[in-house]
Design a protein around this nucleic acid. Structure first.
Length: 144
DNA sequence: CGGCTTTGACCTGCGC
DNA sequence: GCGCAGGTCAAAGCCG
């Protein structure tokens, strides 16, 4: 019963836990994309701009971690090899196409995997003590 | 009343 | 070419 969330970086970790053969394959956080503009319609996808995405594991009892941003859940799907469903969240801020995925580890309901995709273009509206330090690191990784 | 959650359908990429 | 898995949208309903 810890109110605090313990952040773990599987990417930096040399230990490769076989997340039950999760889909995540490789957390490519070293992808650097200078192209932030995305005016391309899905009609002609000449370039799949993969926004920087990085995942980290948090030890929490709840999936909804308040990181200070407002998220709107836009979907929930059950993934294979995981008895727990994965939730999809999107930043409600206009112009901010940041997406977030929350998934629980199979077998370890105490561990929640949060995957962020994209970078926020605006400051936090509601600073959280728990996630403040996490946000700090977040701003470092997407810079790649 | 507004914002958000929920749930099913739909789309796309990939493997066989 | 089909099926599977993952990802997204949209309509309806709920809650504050």
């Amino acid at each position: 019963m810890e109110d605090r969330c313990q952040v773990l970086f599987p990417c930096s970790s040399s230990a490769h836990h076989g997340l039950s053969a999760a889909q995540t394959t490789t957390s490519t956080l070293s992808q650097h994309n200078s192209n932030e503009e995305e005016e391309e319609k899905h009609k002609s996808r000449k370039k799949k701009e993969r926004e920087p995405r990085f995942a980290f594991q948090t030890r929490s009892q709840v999936d909804i971690l308040d990181d200070g941003y407002r998220w709107r859940k836009y979907g929930q799907k059950a993934v294979k090899n995981n008895p727990f469903p994965r939730s999809y969240y999107k930043c409600t801020q206009e112009g901010c196409r940041v997406k977030k995925q929350v998934q629980r580890l199979s077998g370890d309901e105490g561990v929640v995997v949060t995957t962020y995709q994209g970078v926020h273009t605006h400051p936090v509206d509601k600073p959280s003590d728990n996630f403040h330090h996490i946000l700090t690191q977040m701003h470092i990784f997407p810079s790649f």
